[in-house]
């Protein structure tokens, strides 16, 4: 049999390809945001689209997030399917009213009579010393608020498939992409930021977690960087005879409880790793789900790894201290499995 060469793409190209395909398919789809045009998105999410579709469908905006995110809401209510970009999720502060009092609530307040088929894509994550106002993930801040689907894909394959699903979904979807997983030339070069991506349009569901590694001894749930760290930790644990099951959460809202519970019922141990703040966050939510529905399946207390409740510091030793990494997960897993 002839070897088939796999088609490999970076995260940003996978995202841009998804948008490209949907713009070709549906004339109602358009993009608006800061530097999404000629620049191709600061994190490459719209690379090549301006050249192909022009400024009427790939619209650069002023630095006016309230206006252009609000405009996306208004256009979506008219039946268009806008994709708008909040450059860094940290910038949500200037426009959160549009996002959570309007984008998230209009469908509900209208008794389902107004639909907002829009995507709010935004870059998340730290690890490159961009300090407190440019390094957050804020997964939980968005996932906490009802009325928005919130997803955080971890691989180029899922970035494409989930973006296509998000565009086709009739609900507002907050699409969080991790800067370091975009595979950009000017950031850390990670193997994880490149993967096989089929050429055609395909969808990946917006409500399903993915078991990316099967194991019997401990379940590690992560998303984006912490999922990749979990895989790295699992390899190391395997050398010690510990088989970790790794779950890529992918979707924050709705959250796929079943996949997590099924895994915990098998491994009886749970670690949740998150690049968001510890308190009231993703790790707390998943711990609560397991405590409510699978407490007696646990053989040890749940372990949470997340950013201690401090803003993200600038200096490298400080930032590395607060961020999760593979080693922290590995050490917690060893302790957890050896706990009697």
């Amino acid at each position: 049999m002839e070897a088939v060469k796999k088609r490999m793409l970076t995260g940003n190209k996978a995202m841009a390809e998804a948008i490209d395909l949907e713009m070709e398919r549906d004339p109602n789809v358009f993009v608006l945001g800061e530097d999404v045009g000629k620049y191709g998105g600061i994190f490459g999410s719209t690379q090549g689209l301006f050249e192909k579709f022009g400024g009427d469908r790939v619209m650069d905006t002023p630095i006016s997030e309230t206006a252009f995110i609000g405009a996306a809401i208004g256009a979506a209510a008219e039946g268009l399917r806008p994709i708008t970009e909040l450059m860094f999720v940290d910038f949500f502060g200037v426009c959160m009213d549009q996002i959570y009092n309007h984008m998230a609530k209009i469908q509900y307040m209208s008794g389902g009579n107004v639909k907002l088929p829009m995507v709010l894509m935004t870059a998340v994550g730290g690890g490159y010393n961009d300090a407190a106002q440019h390094s957050q993930t804020l997964y939980a801040t968005f996932a906490h608020l009802p009325g928005m689907k919130v997803v955080a894909p971890s691989t180029p394959h899922d970035l494409k498939g989930m973006m296509i699903s998000a565009i086709r979904d009739d609900n507002p979807v907050v699409f969080m992409f991790h800067k370091t997983l975009q595979g950009l030339g000017w950031m850390d070069q990670l193997d994880a930021s490149v993967s096989h991506v089929p050429e055609e349009a395909y969808t990946v569901p917006l409500d399903k977690a993915n078991v990316v590694r099967e194991g019997r001894d401990v379940t590690i749930v992560g998303l984006q960087m912490t999922m990749h760290y979990a895989l790295e930790a699992a390899e190391k644990l395997a050398r010690e005879g510990i088989e970790a099951e790794v779950i890529d959460l992918r979707s924050l809202a709705p959250i796929d409880k079943e996949t997590i519970l099924e895994s915990v019922r098998k491994t009886h141990r749970l670690i949740v790793a998150d690049e968001d703040y510890l308190s009231y966050g993703v790790t707390a939510e998943i711990s609560a789900i397991v405590a409510e529905e699978a407490l007696y399946d646990l053989e040890a207390p749940v372990k949470r790894i997340a950013i201690p409740d401090v803003p993200i510091p600038y200096s490298r030793p400080l930032e590395q201290f607060v961020l999760p990494n593979a080693d922290k997960i590995y050490r917690e897993a060893i302790k957890l499995v050896n706990e009697e």
Partner: peptide, 25 residues
């Protein structure tokens, strides 16, 4: 800022100077 702020987040209250990374803030 003892290394916590970085170049976008400089605070020198002695001369009443501050800066930040969010536009217009």
């Amino acid at each position: 800022g003892k290394g916590k702020g970085g170049h976008m987040h400089l605070f020198d209250p002695d001369v009443k100077f501050s800066c930040g990374g969010i536009i217009a803030a």
